[in-house]
């Protein structure tokens, strides 16, 4: 006796590290177009969830922020983001994942991270976005340095959820 389960193709995972300011809605539109071009059966796209994170205008101690500097580990950061996204996509059975993350100097108000997930239902789409965001904040090698008054201070930890 044997049981067979339908083999689902691995969902498309897109990871982007961006050195210049980006427009999250334009990135989203391009991602949606690229998925749509793969055909209606390529993803279960009845539900889609997004998160856009922007740099706040103050430091952790409340001083005016000039810029946030994002250091990363070239190679490992990309592979780790992809591994986290693949694991989250498999766990929730979602159809497609996009992660875009800034590196370098990011100014207040600019987008720093974009996470988007397409799925067949709202639950997996919403849960995968939230979990992937938390995962990347703690397990993808990025380090923030706040610049204020001409001085840079490495950030010691993540802000509360």
């Amino acid at each position: 006796m044997s049981t067979t389960s339908p083999v689902r193709p691995a969902p498309p995972i897109e990871v982007q590290l961006l050195e210049a300011p980006f427009q999250p809605l334009e990135r989203l539109a391009a991602w949606q177009r690229s998925l749509a071009a793969e055909g209606p059966d390529a993803t279960g796209s009845a539900a889609e969830s997004h998160f856009i994170g922007r740099v706040r205008p103050t430091t952790a101690t409340g001083e005016p922020l000039e810029a946030l500097e994002l250091e990363h580990y070239p190679g490992m950061t990309e592979s780790q983001l992809r591994a986290l996204a693949e694991a989250c996509a498999a766990l929730h059975g979602v159809g497609a994942v996009l992660v875009a993350h800034r590196v370098g100097r990011v100014r207040p108000g600019e987008a720093i991270v974009l996470v988007a997930v397409q799925a067949d239902r709202r639950g997996p789409a919403l849960r995968c976005v939230q979990e992937l965001l938390e995962d990347l904040k703690h397990h993808a090698p990025f380090w923030k340095r706040e610049w204020s008054g001409g001085r840079g201070t490495w950030v010691a930890g993540n802000t509360p959820l």
Binding site: G53, L70, Y73, G75, M76, S79, H101, I112, V113, L133, L136, K137, H138, H139, A140, P141, F142, W143, K144, W154, V155, A156, G157, N158
Partner: peptide, 28 residues
């Protein structure tokens, strides 16, 4: 991290490895 993957601190190193020490991560 050893060869760009997280590893236990007591992992033995091999010649040619790349070993990185990573302070607390603050991404996203």
């Amino acid at each position: 991290a050893i060869n760009q993957a997280f590893a236990a601190p007591d992992s033995p190193l091999a010649p040619g490895d790349e070993v990185a020490f990573l302070p607390p991560i603050t991404g996203g």
